[in-house]
Simulated scan of single mutants.
Amino acid sequence: MNSQKFSLEKLAGLVQGQCIGQADLQLSGMASLEQAKPHHLAFVNAEKYLAEANQSQAGALIVTAELQAQITTQQNFIVVANPYLAFAILTHVFEKKHVETGIESTAQIHPSAIIADTAYIGHYTVIGAHCVVGEGTRIESQVKVDDNVEIGKDCFIDSHVTLTGEARIADRVRIHASTVIGGEGFGFAPYQGKWHRIAQLGSVRIGNDVRIGSNCSIDRGALDDTILEDGVIIDNLVQIAHNVKVGANTAMAAKCGIAGSTTIGKNCVLAGAVGIVGHINIADNVTITGMSMVTKSISVAGSYSSGTPMLESGSWKKAAIRFKQLADVPLTQLVKRLDHMQSQIESLESTFKLRK
């Protein structure tokens, strides 16, 4: 961890918060309310955490003005409108920083590659012909950067990442361990009982401030590029197929799978294990809940779900049998039965009214 210390007043200034209490209190890290010690800063994001806040040993708390008034055991505060956002900002202050620059002796760099003086290239990394690595970018050990790949400024490329397919990566992009960007898309033409490979001629374009987790695959396009716009965040174990376009600031949780030539709008949220078929469009500001399967385009913003919720095993088996029986009944018969039941209910209601 970073051993540097910061005063409460300094930290409050970094998040444009109000410093209350001992302004010169020195803090050297952040911790949860339960684990915090007197040299730690913690945050309180809702009233449900007030009991933990009053019992916490943290040296200071990040709170709203409303929450601060309800905490009686603590004297030192940073008061802000959004404690969680302030916490996110201050984590970067205490984050361990890597300051090395230059190229390690075991790295192999093609003579035609352009590497910024302030970049760092780790051990056993291989960088191909005509690549570009921007200022302040850090590439860890054993990364493979194929020919004609461009990486912007202040990026972080973790160990065992492969960048291929002439990918273009903008500024402040983070790509975590063992992810493959620009691999061959899954394109085959069926003919006479065989699959005939389609050469993938497109690339991948990744915008500014994108974060991609570990063990992800983002395939290059067959003809047009696969595109991740600015601010997209992707969890671990996500597959994005060829020619997919993901709009700005969209988030995907682990194990999502996006089939080819799908367009996903801006500010969307895909929860864990969402699957999306190919060649459909999803509008801006759409949320899809966990383990949903999207089989057609979504044109209106909102929250969408599919699948069945968890039940006790016996109940689930009964429900599954009933669901199958329901599928076996023609829809027209169901509609007629429902109409008949509605007529009976209306008739009973009329009878009761007459008796009154």
Rank of each mutant, 00 (worst) to 15 (best):
Q192A: 10
E140S: 08
P190M: 06
G136H: 01
K153E: 06
Q142I: 05
G185I: 14
G182K: 12
E95D: 10
A167T: 10
F188Q: 09
V133S: 01
I169W: 00
Q108H: 12
I103G: 01
T91H: 08
K97G: 07
V132W: 04
V133E: 09
A88W: 10
V126T: 15
E166D: 13
T91G: 05
E100H: 07
V149Y: 11
H98W: 14
V161T: 13
A88R: 06
K96S: 07
I89D: 03
I151R: 01
I115A: 05
I89G: 01
Q192D: 15
T164N: 14
P190W: 05
V180M: 04
I175W: 01
V145R: 00
G185C: 05
R168M: 09
E184N: 12
D146H: 13
T179G: 13
F94D: 07
F156C: 09
E135L: 06
K144F: 03
T118I: 12
Q108E: 13
T162M: 05
G183E: 06
S159R: 14
F186P: 08
Y124E: 15
R174N: 08
V143R: 07
V132H: 10
G134K: 02
E184Q: 14
E184T: 15
V161P: 07
A113Q: 12
E140H: 14
G182D: 03
R172F: 01
G134R: 04
Q192F: 08
T137P: 02
S159T: 12
V126F: 07
T164P: 12
A167R: 00
G128M: 08
A107I: 10
L90W: 11
